[in-house]
Write a protein that binds this DNA or RNA. Structure first.
Length: 273
DNA sequence: ATGCGGACCTGTTAGC
DNA sequence: TGCTAACAGGTCCGCA
């Protein structure tokens, strides 16, 4: 599930339920996630602290607590957070409960366990996993010119280049495919062979796709008080992702599927040069 | 410094 | 119908 828009939507969905609530208990049923969940560190530092806010950085959620006690959540490939309560039965893969003073529970569910739940110290942005991240795609810092400059020393294909979190965060496999299609750039093109003007086009489409899908996420995933409030993602909007052998929407050529950096890549060989 | 492939997991589906 | 293999929206790490 989680691409940047879902992480953003998750944050917005749970924040009103948890803001200014005290953590009364942390229940960890499965601590083997991407990294071992630091059980005692979390319990010692988080219990009895009030949650002041949640921010998103890349696909990480940063929970800010009083006394500068903060923790990070990453949803990996299959993770989700929902607001629930003691009456709800615990389902398979419900790994962590953060019990709040209003008796609500922030419940972490993650079948593949590629996600993470980490203590982030007093200054989360300096955490090892956050400090070397590239700019946020929706920020002013991210532009065609920025990409062009960064690409000068890179021979890697442009799709893997924009999926590199050190270059820019939050562009997952779907958005990489979609924005390259909209910018009419072949995903195999070496990053250092793309002109400034094409990078400007690409940066523009990355921003547009993410923005429109955050809006979509807001409408399809708005109910965070029930874990089932999901609905059909925003698949209707996709132009090339998962469209192998279907006609291109602009030229009718059949969409190709290749593998780049071990990830499926969909594109139109006629429109994307 | 950059690029590449492997690793971490379970669930779902395509193909025989 | 049932088994097996391939694949899935992420990203870090170690090695060349």
């Amino acid at each position: 599930m989680p691409e940047l828009p879902e992480v953003e939507t998750t944050k917005n969905g749970i924040l009103p339920h948890v803001k200014n609530q005290k953590i009364s208990e942390i229940i960890i049923r499965q601590s083997s996630l991407r990294w071992p969940v630091p059980k005692s560190k979390l319990k010692t530092n988080l219990v009895n602290k009030k949650i002041l806010g949640i921010k998103r950085r890349a696909k990480y959620l940063i929970f800010y607590l009083e006394g500068e006690n903060n923790f990070l959540v990453h949803l990996g490939m299959s993770g989700s957070l929902c607001i629930t309560d003691q009456a709800q039965e615990i389902k398979k893969h419900d790994h962590i409960d953060i019990v709040l003073s209003n008796n609500k529970i922030i419940r972490y569910h993650d079948p593949r366990r590629f996600g993470s739940f980490l203590w982030a110290g007093h200054n989360p942005l300096e955490h090892k996993l956050l400090k070397n991240l590239g700019p946020e795609p929706l920020s002013f810092d991210f532009s065609g010119n920025y990409l062009y400059e960064k690409a000068k020393s890179r021979s890697v294909n442009i799709k893997n280049f924009i999926m590199n979190q050190q270059i820019v965060v939050g562009v997952g496999n779907i958005y990489a495919c979609e924005s390259l299609f909209l910018a009419k750039i072949n995903p195999k093109t070496p990053a250092n062979k793309v002109s400034l003007s094409r990078y400007e086009e690409l940066a523009k489409h990355i921003k547009k796709t993410l923005e429109s899908s955050i809006k979509q996420g807001g409408t399809t995933l708005k109910d965070f008080t029930h874990s089932d409030g999901k609905a059909g993602y925003f698949k209707q909007k996709l132009k090339v992702y998962d469209k192998y052998n279907e006609p291109c929407l602009s030229c009718k050529t059949l969409i190709k599927k290749i593998v780049l950096g071990q990830r499926s890549t969909f594109y139109c060989n006629n429109c994307q040069k």
